[in-house]
Design a binder for these strands. Sequence first.
DNA 1: TGGAATGCGGAATCCTGATTCCGTAATTGA
DNA 2: TCAATTACGGAATCAGGATTCCGCATTCCA
Lengths: 187, 187
Amino acid sequence: MSTPPTRRKPRTDAERNRDRVLEAARALFAEHGYDVQMSEVARVAGVGVGTLYRKFPTREALIEAVAAHRSAEMVAFARERCLAEGDPSQALARFLGHVGEVLAGDRGMSEVIEQAMGSTEPQGEPRAKLHAVVGELIDAARAGGTVRADVTAADVNMIVCGLAAVIRHTAGDWRRFTEIALNGLRS
Amino acid sequence: MSTPPTRRKPRTDAERNRDRVLEAARALFAEHGYDVQMSEVARVAGVGVGTLYRKFPTREALIEAVAAHRSAEMVAFARERCLAEGDPSQALARFLGHVGEVLAGDRGMSEVIEQAMGSTEPQGEPRAKLHAVVGELIDAARAGGTVRADVTAADVNMIVCGLAAVIRHTAGDWRRFTEIALNGLRS
DNA sequence: TGGAATGCGGAATCCTGATTCCGTAATTGA
DNA sequence: TCAATTACGGAATCAGGATTCCGCATTCCA
């Protein structure tokens, strides 16, 4: 009830280019963070800036697209690898380990997560789901006695936020940070 | 052996203006972080941009001047209020509490500290002293049995880095974060 | 195959903010 | 008080990057 009746099928090269842009952006953002120029993304994608802007109308939109994808992956991991299988009392620990792994290999994502885990302000569905999953992970950990009864989602969000910062700025061993944090949540 | 013999005394309004600029910068950086325009600093200081630039040749120099001052204050607090007086085993805890207090009221500083506590790269004397003091605080805490024997300066630096991020991005209660961290360092 | 329709490339344009320049104004020392 | 010296204000200039525009190339469908 919205699109006019007869409409051509979108040109095949158009979607191919969209994929190329996304892939280039993913790689560049992962390596350098979001401090990358649009023209550079276009160049790596083998595309003109005009094309890039037709796919993603603003720099912001491109970043959001990439971040949303990664966030969804993290949520999926939490559900499938942490909550669904294995020892539930270790679910939270496995999650933190995975988050660290991902952020250590994706500078851009560490920037997003650092901010996203902060205030509960609206930031799109993917980030909201991330918050929700954290809640489930805590429940599991609490049930298993791995953390104190008074641990809240806010606590874990702070830890994830801190973890992101540590990974981004520190040369040191982030696993050590997660160990300390988890130990601190124990009764 | 450096300055030519006869030289006038610097104009009094010149130093007054320098102070005004520093004060304006401190206030603005504390409230908004370093995302403030030079012209805004000048306006608040009641001075022209030209004057501002004569005192601090680049934006970077101005930021550095403000940050160095604050860093020195933190080091002084650590020595005088944490190491010199009170229960030594609580020195680290008191220090973290103070850092949180300062960062919570100074957005710019939280940005600096988040980065500064990361790599041990050269960042000027003030930051170097901060690292040194952290070492002393750990020794005191270790001696008092407040933290495990294997806790290192790198551990605490990560925690401070994380704390800065938490304060900057989170609406939540950063004291809770320090409690968890300190608890995590206990044996 | 032919001519719409849809995309493409990338130079040109716009914007935001840092930094420079220079004609004036204020301060100093004799 | 007066010339010399030092500083000031703020418009003009520069620079880095995001975003727009439009003539040309491709792809689609009858």
